[in-house]
């Protein structure tokens, strides 16, 4: 039976609740494999595991339970070892590395912030900032909507203005919240949001971080900010080579 791994934590860390269950249908019981000072939170791996909603939630749930009162290094979803011995072997082999990661991330949680524009509000903004767009909108309306080419030209202009605004606001979100975080990790760009940034925040200063988000909301009503957290430090477990220098302040030097 292969072994599904949720995360790695310190063995001294209070163990997971008795009846905690994880992935699979029916949900499989969660176990703890201890190796020296480290522990892996695991369960049996179900046959034919796929990234389904209930299993993604189960993964996330086990991590938040096991990380509720101590640091846990979250595994990426779907990590399966051939057996328990492989897991304990990896922990033993790389124990110094994982212990160091746990120390570095101790007492810290991840908050992920995604920003989008409220479309109507941002269009108002673009209109009031941009006389050309106003003039062309007006001209088109007077012409009963404008010709196909006119509408294309206006649309192109508006899209460019909205995009410029997106870039500006992405910088704004990041620079407003960065001072409250120990480290940040900029997520991949996507069409779904204009900013997707994870912040590593001291558990104890989470309240002031959330306050800062609220301030930002009030100051910029055209921004739609979605905050998720506290989360296990998904984005800060492993300083990957792909991260540009300086985006993981306080993490980089800890690697050596």
């Amino acid at each position: 039976m292969s072994t599904y791994v949720y995360g790695i934590t310190a063995a001294s860390h209070p163990t997971v609740p008795e009846d905690l269950t994880g992935v699979g249908d029916p949900a499989l019981p969660v176990r703890v494999l201890t190796v020296g000072e480290l522990a892996a939170i695991v369960s049996d791996a179900p046959e034919g595991l796929r990234p389904k909603r209930r299993d993604l939630l189960a993964h996330q749930n086990v991590l938040s339970e096991a990380g509720a009162d101590g640091c846990i290094l979250p595994m990426r979803f779907g990590s399966v070892a051939p057996d328990d011995d492989t897991v304990t072997g990896v922990l033993a082999e790389r124990s110094e590395h994982y212990k160091e990661r746990l120390r570095t991330l101790d007492g810290k949680v991840e908050y992920n912030v995604k920003a989008t524009h409220d479309e109507e509000a941002v269009l108002h903004r673009v209109m009031s900032d941009n006389p050309d767009v106003r003039a062309m909108t007006e001209a088109n309306r007077k012409a009963g909507g404008g010709s196909y080419e006119d509408r294309l030209r206006l649309g192109e202009m508006v899209v460019a203005a909205v995009k410029a605004r997106e870039a500006e606001d992405a910088g704004l979100v990041q620079s407003a919240l960065e001072p409250l975080a120990d480290a940040i990790s900029v997520g991949p760009e996507s069409s779904g949001w204009l900013a997707n940034v994870s912040f590593l925040v001291e558990r104890d200063s989470a309240a002031s971080f959330l306050e800062a988000v609220d301030e930002l909301r009030k100051a910029h009503p055209h921004l739609d900010l979605r905050v998720n957290g506290p989360l296990p430090p998904y984005s800060f477990v492993d300083p990957g080579p792909a991260e540009p220098a300086g985006t993981t302040v306080g993490i980089d030097h800890a690697e050596e």
Binding site: L73, F77, A81, V87, V90, G187, N228, Y234, V237
Partner: peptide, 24 residues
């Protein structure tokens, strides 16, 4: 919150090369 954390659960987090990952 699943939709918003999806990409964290699926794309970030620790990867250990001795383990396999489910097909995505």
């Amino acid at each position: 919150g699943l939709y918003d954390v999806l990409e964290l659960v699926l794309d970030r987090g620790l990867v250990i090369d001795a383990f396999v990952r489910v097909s995505l």
